[in-house]
């Protein structure tokens, strides 16, 4: 095997509304492309293996994990981070609800939680079922539904109870 070959590839992706072109390694994840090459550090690296949710971004509007997405696969796609949800610093209702309910402590999981909540509420609005309900009926906005849908985002500070309340508030806003 040729260890020395360079496998650099140029990608063009819309990040928080701005078209960005950047040279990445084929190995570069979307998360590392954002954090290490584009200076977009809103998505966080908590585990780098799809086990914590801190890197959650919206890819073409759906919540995904940037750490398991290879950057080369994102050309032409639209990436929204928590920073992009607050253009000009004007907070998204989910972000405002997180502030209002103190649904954060250290803040490291928070941008991922926020993106995940936005995606989850969109899924709920579109009638997507979850493990918390009966798949044969339409899901309802309950604390149990929110908790299940937000379970892909770990919070070591233990703010879950407040996160559920915040997401509920944002959904009813």
């Amino acid at each position: 095997m040729d260890h020395h070959r360079r496998v650099d590839t140029e990608i063009t992706t819309r990040v928080d509304g701005v078209t960005r072109t950047v040279l990445v390694d084929t190995r570069t994840t979307l998360l590392d492309a954002l954090r290490e090459r584009l200076g977009t550090t809103s998505p966080k690296k908590g585990c780098d293996h799809g086990q914590c949710g801190a890197c959650t971004v919206l890819l073409d509007g759906r919540r995904v994990l940037a750490c398991l997405t290879l950057a080369v696969t994102t050309t032409g796609k639209d990436v929204t981070t928590a920073d992009g949800l607050a253009p000009d610093g004007h907070l998204h209702p989910v972000q405002q609800a997180f502030l209002d309910n103190d649904a954060l402590q250290c803040g490291y999981c928070t941008p991922g939680q926020v993106c995940s909540a936005v995606g989850a509420l969109d899924e709920l609005a579109n009638g997507h079922p979850s493990h918390a309900g009966d798949v044969t009926t339409d899901p309802q906005l309950t604390r149990a539904e929110i908790a299940e849908r937000m379970s892909g985002n770990l919070c070591r500070c233990g703010t879950y109870t407040n996160i559920i309340t915040a997401v509920e508030q944002a959904a009813r806003a």
């Binding site: 809103s42 928590a82 920073d83 607050a86 610093g89 907070l91 997180f98 502030l99 103190d102 941008p111």
Partner: peptide
């Protein structure tokens, strides 16, 4: 409310 809250919910806290 937390003074660092805005920076944290947007991910701009470095």
């Amino acid at each position: 409310p937390r003074r660092d809250g805005h920076a944290k919910v947007t991910g701009n806290a470095t």
